[in-house]
Design a protein around this nucleic acid. Structure first.
Ligand code: FES
Ligand code: FES
Lengths: 141, 141
DNA sequence: GAAGTTCATGTTTTCAAAATCCTGTCAGTA
DNA sequence: TACTGACAGGATTTTGAAAACATGAACTTC
């Protein structure tokens, strides 16, 4: 469904909503260890999110990543589309070059229902809401 | 979502339900050309389906692949699970090692709904029913 | 302002999926 | 039997995601 990069990105963001202390930055090292994910690889992904203004960072000692007020308003959908591209939620389940109702593949009509449900989930799960859920699970392994 | 191998497999099976002439076998060449898919690679995939008795074949001149009465009763889910493994429809959307309600990730509850919808689709779409749909689209490219 | 910490970025390596190559096997035909 | 057409299957190459490596740039503290 989602690429590994994307899964790492989502888990990292969720981790930050749950464990990001107020006014205190969280380093890649801590996140990577908590999520049991390759640190250098995760760093690349977080940088991508920062470039797209979905995440904030500060350099230097006591630096790290954090979610600004603005960041907290974003949905997971934006994270997914940033890492995996918009196509993940618009492309044909059978890999056909175009996906639309005008020239649908045999599975199209039923598949779009699933896909929209997925989009729904990613949009409704505002980053800020997630911490309300049972959250230690992102770092489960 | 599904691997390329799996997409090819589904499209090939759908193609056979639509274009498989009665009592006449269809060669890999024809299928591969219709689907615009690498022939040798598709051959491998079809062989895998034959090994799992989801598809039938005969060797020699005028040989090829076809769907037996028994094959026609199978669902696309069996095709998917044969190629991509059962895990595709049971694994965690965030890539966590286990997926179940007892220790769910933050997206679990909403995700299982989508996933079950997907399974539903693959089970209900009996191979024999599909040809009723608008079918030339599998070979669109 | 020197040293150390942490994010940023470009390059390289690893690995598995995707694709190709090549030979074997079986069945039909003459 | 010999020949040909098609599937079967092992071995190899290609490709791209995933991961690791190495270096640079910004910031803090002393
Ligand atoms: S055309 Fe295949 S899912 Fe839309
Ligand atoms: S635990 Fe993540 S989807 Fe079930």
């Amino acid at each position: 469904m989602f690429s590994k990069s994307c899964q790492y990105a989502i888990r990292a963001v969720i981790y930050l909503t749950a464990h990001g202390r107020e006014g205190q930055n969280t380093g890649v090292k801590e996140i990577a260890e908590a999520l049991q994910v390759p640190q250098q690889f995760l760093a690349k992904i977080l940088q991508e999110l920062v470039r797209h203004h979905l995440l904030s960072s500060v350099k230097g000692p006591n630096g790290g990543f954090f979610l600004s007020e603005k960041n907290l308003k974003m949905s997971l959908l934006e994270v997914v589309e940033c890492i995996d591209g918009k196509a993940v939620l618009t492309s044909c389940v059978l890999g056909l070059p175009q996906c639309s109702g005008v020239n649908p593949c045999p599975l199209h009509h039923q598949f779009v229902t699933c896909r929209e449900g997925m989009r729904e989930m990613l949009v409704n799960k505002k980053i800020t809401e997630i911490s309300a859920d049972l959250l230690p699970q992102v770092s489960r392994f």
